[in-house]
Design a protein around this nucleic acid. Structure first.
Length: 969
RNA sequence: GCCGGAGUGGCGAAAUUGGUAGACGCACUUGCCUUAGGAGCAAGCGGGGCAACCCAUAGAGGUUCAAUUCCUCUCUCCGGCACCA
């Protein structure tokens, strides 16, 4: 037999596999399917190092086993080529990203090709392909249409190095995950995806997933659900309310009477003027009547319902003074109603001076009833835009707030601070309230805050701090009291002070907390520093020394005294607040101010606002440009391409401007696994038929670093696609393993920087692909991080060569090998299923040792063994398969089966113990009965049992006999 | 600080309804073969002891005839989150 020459046989079989399309995936085979997937790479300029293929080898072995088990296998590969890594590489090397990507992909394919993977390359996809990103854009549009994509101006993370906004998930320790630059907070226009709407479902469905526990735990922590209560702390002070009724209304309607009574009960003054000619109102008459009915000053809050809201705005336009608040419920600023036209469309002017209204008003509230029958969403959005005020969406008791009681209006009318707490039981101990520096109420109350300058300075400083500075300042608390205003603790009814402090985060809960210094460590530190009162309300600690955060019994809490904190939490929530759930997960900031990404398919029209690009016009192609460097201004480089930006509004045909931000790196990878099922389909994202056949991914393998990014995003998109009927499974990935890192021989991470990178090409050249594959799988448990060892790979090569030489020792079937062969068949199959490749290989080594001891192996036995090794060393196995005269290909040969009866031999070793200590090992027939085992054991240790008293005998059939003895006295 | 996971020879590790601790491999030692070997073959390889045996799975306790495995406490390492109310 010839010398083992891996290069020769590997090239030979790789060519043959390619030419015979051996690994082509078919959906109409009538077979059971198995979808095995690797997290597809972004093709970086550095090429692969030996760590990258580890996961690919595992899926390759797994998918080959599935194929031999008679399944129809989908094991595809593609490229995640949009995003910062590719773009930064291109900028650095002064090439166009698309050219760089093309070059890098060619290199990757060459490297992957050498290792002998069973990918079906006819299904290759690339996220930068317009035929692909057309569907990425399409998914975004479906989200936009469902209100899951929204425009926001909240402060977000900004990386000054990459010059783009980032999602929460892209920030690690306050640094940009890509370039480790400290991120800043920056207020800018963004598209944001409402991933938090799916938080609960993602959490719930996680439970049943058979994923590794550590990955599930990472996701749970990242989503960070906590149940608590929202409690309203009203601002102290008395107001005069002017309540303006609507079209066809009058002051004695139940709704208005009820609102009036509720406010008066709280000690406020309420005026409800009767507006004239209510079935044929005119702006002139109504505004005059409203102005004449009351004096307006800084203690006035104007409430307007429906047309009364329009009147209220007109009133405010005319005032020279500032009022405390403006509350609009069922309001609008154009007469395009959902249901029917109304006669005042022409008797009111629909021009408003939004700036003036804002200037004349402290606090503006726009209440919109989700079920309103007259007011459309776009009408409220226009109103929101006019007054630069977010919409407060609620569900009224009756549509358009027409029930006899509408508590949401009272809540909105009274200036108050809503806090989120998980410790409602400590409400009586809340001695102050703290707002986050971003809290909108600060600006709204500026007229009434006597130290506004100081407060403003603090908030600006706090918001300009980077996350690193904010946490580096550490546990040292800072903050400023809002002088001149106070809130009322709803439980104690006492006035308590309000602070602004950056230990309260704007993005979490309501951005405001009730501070309970006696029972919260942070509040305790803050109260000590500012000398605030500390009120103990839970027994069990010593609040002189420290906050007590444990459970206990309530004290100083009026009629709740004596109740356990557990129980009080529910009771107090019920009395003073409502149950609420908060998440650490933030909505997904989805815009990037960079060139190399999918254009967001929206057009802005002055008349219609943001309009979706019609589906027939997708994809919105990324324009070819010479200069694509980031602008740094917060605008995407695309904004400079006027001929691309300027377009027509798809709705009205008027002038429109394209959205110039692009999508983040994670967009294309959030659904790519679906496209592999049907990569060429131009009519559908994925055809119903193919989705039904292949989905979900049965086995998914990739790095653990994706647990809180890609795997969260993909699960979110999948659930959305489920909701709109594109996919039929609740989860995208059934089984998941995270691949353990391969470290360099020096124990550090492999990196160009350290000069310790090992290149797979060199390893394959020297040891062969099969030895390389076996070595990587034998290094240790799949999920462990292990250091590369050149010494050890020689062992893998030795193993491969010993198998090669086995072909020289073919003879008659050797019955002595039967038992161990069947054991090996069983173990290798089971271990591959469980990703325990290291023990599968060790079992094959044990078998090989046994064959060498026996001196020869039968042809049939050899053919079984070749099939076992085929997933691990596919080239070697194919060559040996051919040499023993079996028909092409071993990779389509049936996986061997084992016989239960052959797993056990004529005799089995059994342990004999005395007092639990090993005293003999004997061979016994496996099927003997208890007494036989015992007497055989007794015989073996006869001498030792002389002169002792046997108290007890434990017999584990076929395994062990233990004599419990004591010295005869 | 909180939440996960782990700790077994010189090294990677194996061993689960509790039942021979260290399989398999690397490195190492000795010998054989060889002009030569980064090849092959044979033997050895946790510690102590001439031996019978004894000790040993991070440490301490416990349950059990029997514990790497179950329970309690402590220590160390890795990963994640981190002022999340």
């Amino acid at each position: 037999m010839s010398r083992y020459d891996p290069k020769e046989i590997e090239e030979k079989w790789q060519k043959r596999w390619r030419e015979s399309a051996l690994y082509k995936s078919l959906e109409d085979s009538g077979k059971e399917k198995s979808y095995v997937l690797d997290m597809f790479p972004y093709p970086s300029g550095e090429g692969l190092h030996v760590g990258h293929p580890k996961g690919y080898i595992a899926t390759d072995i797994y998918s080959r086993l599935q194929r031999m088990r008679g399944k129809s296998v989908l094991h595809p590969m593609g490229w995640d080529a949009f995003g910062l890594p590719a773009e930064n590489f291109a900028i650095k090397n002064k090439v166009h990203p698309s050219a760089a990507v093309e070059r890098n992909i060619a290199r990757y394919k060459e490297q992957l090709g050498m290792i002998g993977f069973d990918y079906d390359w006819s299904r290759e996809i690339n996220t930068i392909d317009p035929g692909y990103y057309r569907w990425t854009q399409w998914i975004f549009l479906q989200m936009f249409k469902k209100g899951l994509a929204y425009e926001s101006n909240e402060p977000i993370n900004w990386c000054p190095q990459c010059q783009t906004g980032l999602a929460n998930e892209d920030v690690e320790d306050g640094q940009c995950e890509r370039c480790n630059t400290a991120v800043e907070k920056r207020r800018m226009r963004q598209w944001v995806l409402r991933i938090t709407d799916y938080a609960d479902r993602m959490l719930q469905d996680l439970e049943a997933l058979p994923w590794p526990e550590h990955i599930k735990e990472l996701q749970r922590n990242w989503i960070g659900r906590s149940e608590g209560a929202e409690i309203i702390f009203p601002l102290s002070g008395k107001y005069k309310f002017v309540l303006l009724h609507g079209f066809n209304g009058n002051p004695s309607e139940d709704t208005y009477l009820w609102i009036k009574k509720e406010l008066e009960n709280r000690g406020h003054e309420v005026v409800v003027p009767e507006l004239p000619n209510t079935s044929a109102p005119t702006e002139k008459e109504w505004v005059a009547a409203a102005l004449g009915a009351a004096t307006y000053d800084k203690n006035t809050i104007v409430i307007g319902h429906s047309l009364g809201a329009v009147t209220a705005m007109k009133v405010l336009e005319k005032l020279d003074t500032t009022v405390a608040g403006l509350v609009l419920f069922g309001g609008f600023c154009d007469p395009n109603f959902l249901d029917k036209a109304r006669p005042f469309a022409n008797t009111f002017s629909w021009k408003f001076d939004g700036g003036k209204i804002q200037k004349n008003t402290g606090r503006i509230v726009i209440l919109h009833d989700r079920n309103d029958t007259a007011i459309s969403r776009s009408q409220v959005e226009a109103l929101s835009h006019l007054l630069d005020t977010p919409i407060t969406e609620v569900v009224a008791k009756e549509p358009h707030f027409e029930a006899s009681e509408e508590p949401v209006v009272i809540h909105a009318a009274l200036p108050s601070i809503k806090v989120f707490t998980t410790r409602a039981d400590t409400l009586f101990g809340a001695t102050y309230v703290v707002l986050a520096p971003e809290h909108p109420l600060l600006g709204e109350l500026r007229e009434r805050i006597s130290n506004w300058k100081e407060v403003e300075k603090y908030t600006i400083t706090a918001q300009h701090k980077t996350e690193i500075e904010r946490t580096a300042d550490g546990k040292e608390k800072s903050g400023v009291e809002l002088k001149g205003i106070k809130v009322i603790n709803p439980a104690t009814e006492k006035e308590i002070p309000i602070f602004v402090a950056d230990y309260v985060l704007g993005g979490y809960g309501t951005g405001a907390i009730m501070a309970v210094p006696a029972h919260d460590e942070r509040d305790f530190a803050f109260a000590k520093k500012f000398n605030l009162s500390i009120q103990e309300v839970i027994t069990g600690g010593d609040i002189e020394k420290a906050a007590y955060t444990g459970p206990g019994t309530l004290i100083n809490s009026e009629h709740f005294d004596g109740v356990s904190s557990e129980e009080a939490r529910q009771k107090i929530t019920r009395s003073y607040g409502e149950v609420k759930v908060s998440y650490k997960l933030r909505d997904w900031v989805f815009s990037r101010q960079r060139y190399w990404g999918e254009p967001i398919p929206l057009i802005h029209c002055d008349k219609d606002g943001w309009v979706a690009v019609p589906e027939k016009d997708l994809p919105v192609r990324l324009p070819e440009v010479d200069h694509y460097e980031p602008t740094g201004t917060g605008e995407s480089p695309l904004s400079n391409i006027t001929e691309w930006v300027n377009t027509r509004c798809p709705t009205c045909g008027g002038p429109g401007r394209r959205e110039t931000n692009t999508m983040p790196q994670w967009a294309g990878s959030s659904w790519y696994y679906l496209r592999f099922m049907d990569p060429k389909d131009s009519a559908e994202l994925v055809s119903k038929k193919n989705e039904k056949y292949w989905a979900p991914v049965d086995m998914y393998v990739g790095g653990a670093e994706h647990a809180t990014r890609h795997l969260i995003y993909a699960r979110f998109w999948h659930k959305f696609l489920y909701d709109i009927g594109i996919v039929t499974t609740l989860e995208p990935f059934t089984h998941l393993y995270s691949v353990g890192l391969i470290l360099a021989e020096d124990g550090r991470k492999m990196s160009k920087r350290f000069g310790n990178v090992i290149n797979p090409d060199d390893v394959v050249m020297r040891y062969g692909a099969d030895a390389f594959r076996v070595y990587e799988m034998f290094m240790g448990p799949f999920e462990n991080a292990v250091a590369w060892s050149t010494d050890s790979i020689a062992g893998a090569r030795r193993f491969v060569e010993r198998i090669w030489r086995l072909a020289e020792h073919m003879g008659d079937e050797d019955p002595s090998l039967e038992q161990i062969l069947h054991q090996t068949v069983k173990k290798v199959g089971e271990d591959i299923e469980q990703f325990k490749f290291n023990t599968a290989i060790s079992q094959m080594m044990i078998f090989l040792n046994a064959v060498e001891d026996a001196g020869s192996i039968g042809t049939k036995q050899f053919s079984i063994f070749v099939r076992l090794i085929a997933p691990f060393a596919p080239h070697l196995a194919e060559e040996l398969w051919e040499r023993v005269g079996e028909p092409y290909s071993v990779h389509r040969a049936p996986w061997p089966s084992f016989e239960e009866s052959k797993l056990v031999g004529e005799s089995v070793p059994m342990v004999v113990q005395i007092n639990g200590r090993l005293r003999a090992t004997i061979n016994v027939p496996p099927k003997a009965d208890q007494h036989e085992f015992q007497s055989l054991a007794e015989e073996a240790v006869k001498e030792r049992l002389k002169g002792v008293h046997i108290k007890r005998v434990i017999v584990v059939p076929g395994r062990l006999v233990n004599f419990v003895v004591e010295e005869k006295s």
